[in-house]
Amino acid sequence: MAEKKRVSFLMFLPPLIFLGLAALFFIGVSRDDPNALPSTLIGKPAPVLAVEPLEGVTFGDADLREGGVTLVNFWASWCGPCRDEHPVLETLAEDGVTIYGVNYKDKPANAMRFLDQLGNPYAAIAADPAGRAAIEWGVYGVPETFVVDGKGQVVLRHPGPLTPEVVAKTLRPAIEAASAQ
């Protein structure tokens, strides 16, 4: 009799496992943005920027806490999507948005050649040769852009390249909301 109950239970186990996995899949697919990568920094002070100067004017933590709304953009010369987003950064800079660039795990000569070829949208740039600052900021990969309000609080994190659509739908509203505070 006990053997018969055991067989009956085992017979239902595969369909139960399937239903559980199907439920997890459905929950994952029905999220608002399945590509969204969470950030623990939103609403918190921007992490300390342990960066090195990169030929010319650099910036530091005080710049993120004493000015208006700024963008912090992690980028690299070897990054194809960074090249794709560069015209968008230049447009933002022309529109008066202050952008600080953090050059990620790159050779200084390559970084400067990249900026010489494509233009420099950054108010100041710094180097993160070992990637330590990127780890502190929770960067998954480059490019990645953060909106920081005038008090040094992270308002928005955007992983991936900025596009005109992202700027219109996500970045500009975050900048305007941070400016209004």
Score class of each variant (00 low, 15 high):
residue 80 G to Y: 06
residue 152 G to A: 09
residue 135 I to N: 06
residue 147 V to S: 11
residue 162 L to A: 08
residue 32 D to E: 07
residue 137 W to I: 14
residue 144 E to F: 09
residue 178 A to D: 09
residue 70 T to V: 15
residue 121 P to D: 01
residue 23 A to R: 02
residue 82 C to P: 02
residue 150 G to R: 12
residue 98 T to F: 01
residue 178 A to P: 14
residue 62 A to K: 14
residue 3 E to K: 14
residue 88 V to Y: 01
residue 119 G to N: 05
residue 56 G to V: 12
residue 109 A to W: 02
residue 28 G to M: 07
residue 125 I to M: 13
residue 120 N to M: 08
residue 49 L to E: 00
residue 28 G to K: 08
residue 140 Y to W: 14
residue 22 A to L: 15
residue 121 P to T: 04
residue 36 A to T: 05
residue 12 F to M: 10
residue 12 F to N: 02
residue 85 E to C: 01
residue 1 M to P: 06
residue 141 G to D: 08
residue 108 P to G: 09
residue 34 P to V: 15
residue 124 A to D: 01
residue 137 W to D: 01
residue 19 L to C: 11
residue 36 A to Y: 03
residue 14 P to M: 05
residue 49 L to H: 06
residue 112 M to D: 03
residue 24 L to E: 00
residue 1 M to G: 10
residue 101 G to V: 00
residue 78 W to I: 02
residue 64 L to I: 12
residue 41 L to Y: 10
residue 163 T to F: 00
residue 160 G to C: 13
residue 111 A to I: 11
residue 91 T to V: 15
residue 173 P to I: 08
residue 58 T to I: 12
residue 65 R to D: 00
residue 65 R to N: 00
residue 158 H to I: 13
residue 90 E to F: 02
residue 2 A to M: 11
residue 97 V to S: 02
residue 72 V to P: 00
residue 92 L to Q: 06
residue 20 G to C: 06
residue 63 D to K: 03
residue 44 K to L: 15
residue 175 I to E: 02
residue 66 E to C: 05
residue 3 E to L: 15
residue 126 A to W: 09
residue 35 N to T: 09
residue 118 L to Q: 01
residue 86 H to K: 01
residue 110 N to T: 00
residue 24 L to Y: 03
residue 129 P to H: 12
residue 37 L to M: 13
residue 76 A to H: 06
residue 181 Q to E: 14
residue 27 I to D: 08
residue 58 T to G: 13
residue 171 L to S: 07
residue 59 F to S: 06
residue 114 F to H: 04
residue 94 E to G: 11
residue 103 N to C: 11
residue 39 S to C: 14
residue 27 I to Q: 07
residue 164 P to S: 06
residue 35 N to C: 04
residue 74 F to T: 08
residue 169 K to Q: 13
residue 179 S to E: 14
residue 135 I to A: 13
residue 178 A to L: 13
residue 65 R to T: 02
residue 2 A to H: 08
residue 2 A to Y: 02
residue 76 A to K: 07
residue 118 L to G: 03
residue 78 W to R: 05
residue 35 N to W: 09
residue 2 A to P: 06
residue 8 S to W: 04
residue 51 V to L: 15
residue 16 L to S: 06
residue 105 K to A: 03
residue 51 V to G: 11
residue 44 K to F: 05
residue 139 V to P: 07
residue 5 K to G: 01
residue 148 V to Q: 00
residue 131 G to I: 08
residue 8 S to D: 00
residue 30 S to K: 14
residue 20 G to S: 11
residue 55 E to V: 03
residue 22 A to G: 09
residue 179 S to I: 00
residue 162 L to Y: 11
residue 103 N to P: 03
residue 179 S to D: 07
